[in-house]
Design a protein around this nucleic acid. Structure first.
Lengths: 167, 167
DNA sequence: GCCATACCGTTCGGATACGAACCATCTGGA
DNA sequence: TCCAGATGGTTCGTATCCGAACGGTATGGC
């Protein structure tokens, strides 16, 4: 890999820190992870989610409930990837929009079960195909093999972090 | 790629949505992008940043000023990847910690120039090597070739989004 | 010099985000 | 039966985060 392939920000890093004892190989991998994730997220928020005035987290929340069905608030928070206090706030917002419903768990007085309302289901079923179409457009510039390779490498990274966290 | 390699959440998606007309190949690439980015960020916040009580964005902000030197508030926001209003708030926080300084641009009465204080420089020079060491540990489970491949694929993704945004 | 336009950074309002702390409820052991 | 400990969800306080809107400053054309 020649330095010509580096992004401008990366070349600036080399210019400033190039003489330090740092693992630039790992740095390029991880920093580009965040750079590309932020770029894709921004793109999706602007091109897909803005049309329905849905936040990123709100979208993920609807998606999770669509895929998993009714969930306890705790499991919901974990699946969405947010803390429990944050989940409380997000569910309040989605509730105000009429997209989710909460009911007491008949088997556990502490637990609250969360699910999509018909309106919420309609929203995610309308939104997700358009989201997926953008995924296709963005990832499509890589070949099919490279999309698979990328997904595989990222799964390895997730598992690596999980191991290091001491799951 | 066999389905055995999929993460549990991915298998659940296939189970619920597998019969729909969706581009699962692109979906695995993009969804794993966010999954792994969130995992790495959480790990870094807990293992590295928490020791100095620095937020993720605060860390990126210090890093940007370290690499680029003095910047206009506008250029600063763009380099960090946040909006201008958010930059105002983050700079306020970092200022209260004594890590950054602002001064009026002598050549442009509208502009504010932002830079690290010596204390801010000390903080990032202490923090970044530890951050990089974690990058090494996490990315190291991939081989050197795969780290390069991953970075390269992610750069392609960034450029793909940039093209599609119509920069 | 004048002024329409553009640009810079901030403020404002509201949503998202977390750790700490808080009750209510459940569970396991005595 | 009781109660110590664990668990579930919420509230509180504070830091991010953004779009919209705002004043202050610069610029270009006349």
């Amino acid at each position: 890999m020649s330095a010509d392939d580096l992004l401008p920000a990366e070349r600036k890093v080399l210019e400033t820190l190039g003489d330090r004892q740092l693992d630039f190989r790992a740095m390029w991998a991880i920093s580009n992870l965040f750079r590309s994730a932020a770029a894709v997220r921004r793109h999706m928020e602007g091109k897909v989610l803005a049309t329905e005035r849905v936040s990123w987290t709100g979208f993920v929340a609807l998606w999770v409930l669509w895929v998993w069905g009714e969930l306890g608030a705790n499991a919901f928070a974990e699946a969405v990837g947010i803390s429990r206090p944050t989940a409380t706030g997000v569910l309040r917002t989605l509730d105000a929009r009429g997209w989710i419903a909460r009911r007491a768990d008949p088997d556990d007085g502490r637990s609250v079960l969360v699910s999509l309302t018909p309106a919420g289901r309609t929203t995610i079923e309308h939104l997700f195909p358009r989201f997926n179409a953008e995924e296709t457009a963005i990832a499509g510039t890589l070949g099919e093999r490279d999309q698979d390779r990328l997904a595989s490498l990222l799964r390895s990274l997730s598992r690596s972090v999980q191991d290091r966290d001491g799951s």
